[in-house]
Amino acid sequence: MARILVIEDEDRQALLLQRGLGAEGHTVGVAPDGVRGLARAQRERWDLLVVDRMLPGLSGVDLCRAYRATGGSAPLLFLTARDTTADVVEGLDAGANDYLVKPFAFDELCARVRTLLRRSPGPTGARLATGPLVLDPAEHRAWCDGVELELTAKELELLHLLMKRSGSIVTRDALAGRLWDLETEPASNALEVHVSSLRRKLGDHGTLVRTVRGIGYTLREAPR
C-alpha cells in the first residue's frame, strides 16, 4: 500500500513497528539512527516517516528540520517518550505532522498512520474534502454533508487552515499567526471563541475539530 520509513534506534521496537505496519500491508523500511535515517529519507520516496524523538547521532527534531529544509514533503509522525507540551510543540514546529507518546496502543498508531496517509494537500485553490466537509477556497464557501455552512471570514479561514493540514496538528501560534497580524494582538481567548463557534456551526460534526491540549487543533475523525 504505502511506503513507510521507521527511524528508531531501539532494535526490537523498530522490528515490531516493521512487522505490525507490514501486517497492515505497508512496505516498511528501517533506519537505526538519525544520520542514516535522514540519508534514507532523502534518497528514496516515502509516503510517511515514523521517527523516534530521541535518536543517537541526529535527534528526531533536527532530522525533521533537515528533511523539511531539503524539500522533504512526506508526512512525519513522532514517537516520543517525552510528552511535555514544550517537547511536543518543538517537534511540531520543526515540521512534524503528528506525535504519539510511548508506550502507544498499536491500534492508535495504525489509525494515525491511516489519517496521515489519507491527507491530501492538493494545490491551493482546489476544493478540499475531509470526511463530510468540503471547502472551496476560491469561492469562500464550505459544505457539511452537502449543506452549505454560513461561516464568518475568520471561521472559514480557520477551517481552511485545518483542512489543508487535515490529520496533522496545527499549533495555536500557527493558527493565530495566519488569522491575525502580529500588530493586532487578539484577546487571549479569541482563537477559542472562533473554534467554539465553528464547532457549533458544524453541529454533530463539531467533534471533527479536536483540541490538542496546550498545543493546538487538528481536524481528525474520532479514534476507535
Binding site: E10, L16, A23, V101, P103, F106
Partner: peptide, 18 residues
C-alpha cells in the same frame, strides 16, 4: 526516568499487540 521506563514498556506493549 520517564524515558527509561517508557522505552522498554513500549517494546513490551508493541511486542504483545503485534
Amino acid at each position: 526516568a520517564s524515558h527509561e521506563l517508557r522505552t522498554p514498556l513500549s517494546v513490551i506493549r508493541s511486542e504483545v499487540e503485534v
